[in-house]
Amino acid sequence: MAIWVCRAGKKAVYVEEFLKQEKIFCTWDGFDYDLNLYDDKEKLKEKIRKEKKDAEPTAINTWAAQLMCLKEKMQNGDIVLTPNENSKSYNIGIIIGVYEYKSEVPEHFRHGRQVRWLPDIIFRDKMPQYMIYSLGAYRTIFNLKYENEFVELLAKLGIPI
C-alpha cells in the first residue's frame, strides 16, 4: 500500500470540495484533456509542451509525472493525505476509484479519483520531524516516504485504515 499526498489547491482552498465530493483532484489551471488518451509519460509530455509553450522542460516533466501518478500509479486501497489550511492537519482517505476525467465540470475538478474519507484527521504535531519534512515537498501530488512508519503511526494513534 502506498501513501500519497494530494494538495487541494493553494492554501487548501478546495479541501471542502474534496471532502464533499469524496474525491481528490488535480486542481491546476489548464490540462483540459483526458489523461486516458495518453498511454505513456512521453506522449503526455508532448501534449503538455504544446499547451504550455513557454514552460521549462523541468516543469513539463514535473507536471507529467504528477498527472501520471494520479492516472496510473495510485491504486485502490492506497492511502491519501490532503493537507488542510496551513498544513497543520491532514485529511486521511482511502483511494477507491480509478482516474476519471470529466470535461463538463469546473476546471479545477476535471481530473480526479474517488476516495473514502476517514472521519479522523492527523495533526502534524503527532508526526516525527523527518516525516513532517517529507510532507513539505513542493509538489501537488507525490508519494510519501516512510510508508510503513506512517501506517504504524496511524495504528499507534488509534486511526483505523
Rank of each mutant, 00 (worst) to 15 (best):
A137Y: 08
R124I: 09
K71A: 03
N86P: 00
I141G: 06
V80L: 02
E85A: 09
K102W: 02
Y138D: 14
E46C: 00
A55F: 15
I60C: 08
Y133K: 15
S87L: 07
A59Y: 12
Y138H: 11
Y133L: 12
V115N: 00
K73W: 10
N148W: 01
T62C: 06
K53H: 07
K71G: 01
K52T: 03
K53V: 14
T62Y: 05
N86S: 10
G97H: 01
R124N: 06
L144D: 02
R113A: 01
A55V: 04
K52F: 14
E100G: 02
I92S: 01
S89M: 07
Q114F: 05
G112S: 15
K52Y: 13
Y101L: 09
L44N: 04
E46Q: 09
T58R: 09
K102Q: 13
Q66L: 05
Q129T: 11
I94H: 00
E56S: 15
G136K: 11
E149R: 13
K102V: 08
V105K: 12
Q66D: 04
K73S: 13
C69N: 13
T82P: 05
P83E: 07
F150H: 02
K47A: 10
K53Q: 13
P128C: 05
S87A: 15
I79H: 01
S103V: 09
V115S: 00
A65W: 11
E104M: 06
V115G: 00
P119C: 01
D125S: 10
D78G: 03
Q129K: 15
S89N: 14
Y130P: 01
E85Y: 07
N61P: 00
N86F: 10
E147H: 12
K53A: 12
E147P: 05
A65I: 05
K88L: 11
E51I: 13
L67S: 06
Y130W: 09
I92C: 00
T82S: 15
F142V: 09
I121R: 13
E100T: 05
K88N: 05
S134W: 02
P128E: 10
K71W: 02
K145Q: 13
A137L: 14
K45T: 05
Y138K: 11
N91T: 03
Q66M: 08
N84V: 02
F109W: 11
N84D: 12
Y90P: 03
M131T: 03
M127G: 03
E56K: 12
Y99L: 04
K47V: 03
N61A: 14
I95D: 00
N91P: 00
L144Q: 12
R110N: 01
Y90S: 08
W63M: 07
E85N: 08
N86A: 10
V98L: 13
D120W: 12
N91G: 03
Y146S: 08
F109Q: 12
M74N: 02
I60Q: 07
Y99V: 02
C69H: 14
K53N: 06
L44E: 06
E51D: 14
D54A: 14
A64H: 02
M127Y: 07
Q129I: 09
K126Q: 14
G93L: 00
N61G: 12
K71F: 04
K71N: 11
C69W: 10
L70S: 02
E107H: 03
E56V: 09
G77P: 07
D78S: 07
I48C: 03
F123Y: 15
